[in-house]
Design a protein around this nucleic acid. Structure first.
Lengths: 144, 144
DNA sequence: TTTTAATTGATACTTACTATCAATACAACG
DNA sequence: CGTTGTATTGATAGTAAGTATCAATTAAAA
């Protein structure tokens, strides 16, 4: 038995905490996200939920990013992807072959940030780090 | 006298080395990039060069990214920006207030990558790191 | 100079959103 | 529980950042 998926309540509670209404559409988007594991695009969700308007899907995803329920990141070519947030403060590895997204936590990254405090003029207010990989599965598979 | 800008020849030579033709339009795009210092958008260049087709501007920028003459990066909201590459292997700090982009080199970043080799399954093929800051000038300015 | 493949630009299309705004529905109140 | 007010929704149109197409042009090798 691997780690159980975050129950839907967590995301819903995060929305409630932000003073937002819990609508049927928002429940559907959250449920659709939980049915997947790994990265997904906004269109993936929109196509999976024809009953929910595209605008609503995009709006809900944005809310969930703000609430730290999901992360928005980008493939090397800039294509935006979303990925559920499980680990508190983390970064992403993205397989450039199959698109699989994994979270990782590495304290050395935080150390880099501290080291940059000395090197960079100004106040650090955020950062983004993505590591592009060829995952084990893709390395082992025949093609490519 | 601060560091002189990279002479146009460097970018042109990079294109030649890639077996590409040196056209008037490509010269114009390279010259426009060199006239700026800091980040710029593709539209900035396109509007500055009404004599060069939009498609050509985008095509040329893509070539220059591939040739490592410029970098493509993104603001926190995803807006794509370009920035000239001066330092061999570097990352970017982006001021979230004024948009100023600076390059920095930090060996700890490379150390993180090595540390990740142990933590991540698969082969690391690339990475991206952006640090978002409020630059000295913006911190000192009155508004915000 | 000739030739030929690379390049260009006008246009239309695509992707990933965002704005608008009337209609709807959550949820707080009584 | 019914009323009510505001948040939310969805259809549609618009925007930003490109990419595809393809006939016309041009760099540069011969």
């Amino acid at each position: 038995m691997t780690t159980a998926p975050t129950p839907q309540l967590d995301a819903i509670i995060a929305l409630e905490d932000a003073g937002l209404r819990i609508t049927g559409q928002r429940r559907q988007v959250v449920a659709a996200i939980e049915r997947r594991d790994g990265g997904f695009t906004a269109e993936d969700i929109a196509m999976e939920l024809p009953g929910v308007g595209r605008a609503t899907v995009y709006r809900t995803l944005k809310l969930l990013v703000t609430a730290d329920v999901i992360c928005k990141l980008a493939l090397p070519d800039g294509t935006p992807m979303y990925s559920p947030s499980r680990v508190e403060h983390h970064h992403h590895s993205v397989c450039t072959t199959c698109g699989a997204i994994e979270e990782f936590r590495d304290t050395t990254v935080e150390r880099v940030l501290r080291s940059l405090t000395r090197e960079i003029e100004g106040e650090i207010v955020g950062h983004r780090m993505e590591v592009f990989i060829r995952c084990q599965t893709c390395l082992e598979s025949p093609g490519a």
